[in-house]
Design a protein around this nucleic acid. Structure first.
Length: 725
DNA sequence: TATACCTGGATTTTT
DNA sequence: TCCAGGTATA
């Protein structure tokens, strides 16, 4: 069967996908079906077997991590570097195009990328400058509107509306765009839109790239938005072949503009496209796959796919009903402890949840038992306040017209330029169509400011100019070092006390060494100055999340960020109506279907064991909520799920529905204990009251002890005492 | 200009 | 409930 080494060890479908000839190709790759492997082998196949130069291949991913991994794996497979191959994120590649053709798209050579935080601040200021009530026009909403329009490929002039609300939004969009253009600023959506316009409107450029890229490969295609898809179509032209890999069942980013429909659209637009389904799963047990298949089967409009494995059934899925979120957390932690005692590593266990707010209780429970853990999705390096301050100074050096950067640092650290002064500068800038930098200069030289303010602004201008002199012949690391010292940023954070301030000082120093170690060659942006390249790198790759405190740690993350990962043991916490599916998505069928896909994604992360937990009572934003188990759990086949704990069966709660919530807070008249309460036993340690029966001196109480499991005890003899968390 | 208080908002995330 | 961001106050 193995005609070629690159096909070795691949199943039939995978081989077909790897060795597919020139026709367009859709690979519908189910979870755990070896998708990345196929993509990597296909690229290697094109180069090695079909003799395409790496130069003629373009591969697109959604994250830098995926791009780096893919390049690494292709190189390892081929045993040679493929530097001339373009591989990167949509944004990274668009950026590359814009740098190479900045003149054609009307951008200054030193244009800067702003992240969504910068974007929001900028919009907020513009709303103020339009004298709009910022309560009625929240910056967030306008930002959402602007990015949405850009993702659809629409400029303000394309928007025709009689809706007064939208007219105002359009006006904000218009002003925002003018401000960005004047300052040489490009947001994330703008990268894509402008690169698209470049290819669409400039025939020479378009044909150049169409001639170059004979093979386009797009990963995670279900996550593409309109403009990204339009981009792919333009580059594909008439003669190049396109391979897209994706899974409609794992489309979980519709809320940020991703269009699953693009997959179907691809089949319509690219004649003769072949579809190959990868349905054999190499990750999970049959029990998990059967349940996942059953859940996702409730969605309509699927392209259709059913995962299977030739491996074992494995353990059934466990379902645990907790009284509240604290007890849920304790149960999960007790299970992790048991699992670790059986010789497993903490890092092989993951706790997944729908919303970040859920992590807190879980953390407390882990902390309580001294179990190391790691939370994904915190602030990343280049997003930290002190780093953004420093980057703003660097941006100012690269581009004096960068208004967003000036706004951020002109009074950081404070040098006596308050709101009044700033308002005057902003006003001047607006009146005379100048950047803030030029306006500030003008006001100083024309004595338009009072003595104290004038001196303050002049000293800032002097600082920036002095720093700028250094950029001429200093290395990047030296520039950064001078910058944090001379600007007073370092001193400012050094003067603050507390652990937080210490970390900030460390981070600033870390930034300097990042600048020192920054290797221009790695960026493939040779035509840029080191400073500009570094800034682009900082904007496009927000960097690592906080450093791991422990090597071997339990992994905590949202269901969304778990996509693409796998763990032997997976807990899905909070599988409750109202939380998962979330309340907001319950009314709209489309959004509910997306929640279901999220459930499918979560379940298919588990390799050996999947545990679902929910809390009948949960505190959300300070309010108690009563929830029933998620509909998704009810969609799983009964024989693949087993309930870990039988429900307590109190007598007087029938009217409260299936899950008898009302009893949770009631104290048993005779015992003085209540369901869900924490108690301590001399011998067994701490545990949670699960159930009780009988009355008077004979009454017995069931307790789930953290360390020894569940036991029935006679209340009269057990000598239980209440315990805290 | 720094600090104390108050208000409102609160899935999900990458670039 | 908790956080950030804005406003009021010294």
């Amino acid at each position: 069967m193995s005609q070629h080494p690159l096909l070795d060890g691949l199943n039939d479908k995978q081989q077909q996908a790897v060795s597919n000839d020139d026709s367009h190709l859709l690979v519908l790759a189910g979870a755990g079906s070896g998708k990345t492997r196929v993509l990597v082998h296909r690229i290697a196949w094109l180069i090695q077997q079909r003799q395409f130069s790496p130069y003629s291949i373009l591969a697109v991913t959604f994250t830098n991590k995926a791009a780096a991994e893919m390049r690494g794996r292709v190189e390892r497979l081929l045993g040679s570097n493929v530097r001339s191959m373009w591989i990167g994120t949509f944004h990274g590649l668009a950026h590359r195009l814009l740098r190479a053709h900045y003149m054609d798209v009307g951008l200054p050579q030193n244009f800067q990328i702003i992240d969504s935080d910068d974007q929001q601040r900028l919009i907020k200021r513009l709303i103020k400058s339009l004298n709009l009530d910022d309560k009625r026009w929240p910056a967030k909403q306008s930002q959402w509107y602007i990015n949405g329009k850009k993702d659809e490929g629409l400029r303000p002039q394309h928007i025709d509306t009689y809706d007064p609300t939208e007219q105002t939004l359009k006006q904000i969009y218009q002003l925002y765009q003018e401000s960005c253009d004047r300052a040489g600023l490009v947001d994330f959506a703008e990268l894509l839109l402008r690169a698209h316009e470049l290819l669409r409107d400039n025939r020479t450029v378009r044909e150049h790239y169409q001639r170059r890229f004979r093979h386009l490969l797009v990963d995670e295609f279900q996550d593409t938005n309109s403009i990204q898809y339009a981009w792919v179509r333009l580059l594909a032209g008439e003669q190049n072949s396109v391979t897209i890999v994706g899974d409609d069942d794992q489309s979980i980013y519709g809320w940020r503009g991703a269009r699953v429909e693009n997959i179907q659209q691809f089949l319509d637009d690219f004649a003769g496209a072949k579809t190959i389904r990868l349905e054999q799963n190499y990750r999970s047990t049959a029990a998990i796959l059967n349940a996942a298949n059953a859940v996702i089967a409730n969605n309509s409009d699927r392209l259709g796919k059913e995962l299977w494995t030739d491996g074992d059934d494995g353990e059934p899925i466990a379902l645990y009903a907790a009284f509240n979120e604290m007890e849920e957390a304790r149960y999960i932690v007790s299970q992790i402890m048991a699992w670790q005692e059986q010789g497993n590593a903490y890092q092989d266990a993951a706790i997944l949840y729908r919303s970040n707010a859920q992590s807190r209780v879980l953390e407390e429970a882990l902390l309580h038992q001294r179990i190391p853990y790691r939370i994904y999705g915190g602030l990343r390096f280049f997003e930290r306040q002190e780093i953004k301050d420093a980057l703003a100074y660097l941006r100012l050096l690269a581009n004096r017209d960068d208004d967003a950067a000036i706004e951020r640092v002109i009074n950081t650290p404070s040098r006596g330029i308050g709101n009044r002064t700033m308002d005057m500068i902003r006003q001047t800038a607006r009146d005379r169509q100048l950047s803030l930098w030029d306006a500030a200069n003008l006001m100083v030289s024309e004595a338009m400011l009072s003595g104290r303010a004038k001196n303050a602004v002049a000293s800032f201008i002097e600082l920036a100019t002095r720093l700028d002199d250094h950029t001429i012949d200093f290395s990047l690391g030296r520039i950064a070092d001078e910058m944090i010292k001379q600007s007073g940023l370092l001193a400012m954070y050094e003067a603050e006390k507390g652990e937080k301030a210490e970390t900030r000082v460390e981070n600033l120093k870390e930034l300097v060494s990042a600048c020192e170690n920054f290797n221009l060659d790695d960026t493939e942006q040779e035509q840029m100055t080191p400073l500009a390249a570094f800034l682009a790198h900082a904007a496009l790759e927000a960097g690592e999340e906080q450093a791991d405190e422990y090597q071997d740690a339990v992994q905590l993350m949202t269901l969304h960020s778990a996509k693409g990962l796998e763990f032997p043991l997976v807990f899905m916490a909070g599988v409750e109506e109202g939380l998962f599916p979330s309340q907001q998505s319950m009314d709209e069928p489309g959004r509910l279907a997306e929640e279901r896909r999220l459930c499918y994604v979560g379940m298919t992360r588990a390799m050996q064991k999947l545990v679902l937990t929910y809390a009948e009572q949960r505190r959300i934003y300070g309010q108690e909520h009563f929830h029933t188990v998620s509909r998704f759990v009810r969609e799983m086949p009964a024989d693949s799920v087993y309930e870990v704990r039988a429900q307590a069966t109190p007598t007087k709660t029938e009217s409260y529905g299936r899950f008898h919530h009302s009893v949770s807070h009631e104290t048993f008249e005779q015992t003085g204990f209540s369901l869900g309460q924490r108690v301590r036993h001399q011998k067994f340690g701490e545990g949670t009251v699960l159930n009780y029966e009988g009355s008077g001196p004979q009454s017995r109480i069931q307790i789930n002890f953290d360390n020894v499991g569940s036991k029935w005890l006679v209340v009269a003899y057990a000598r239980l005492e209440p315990a805290g968390f």
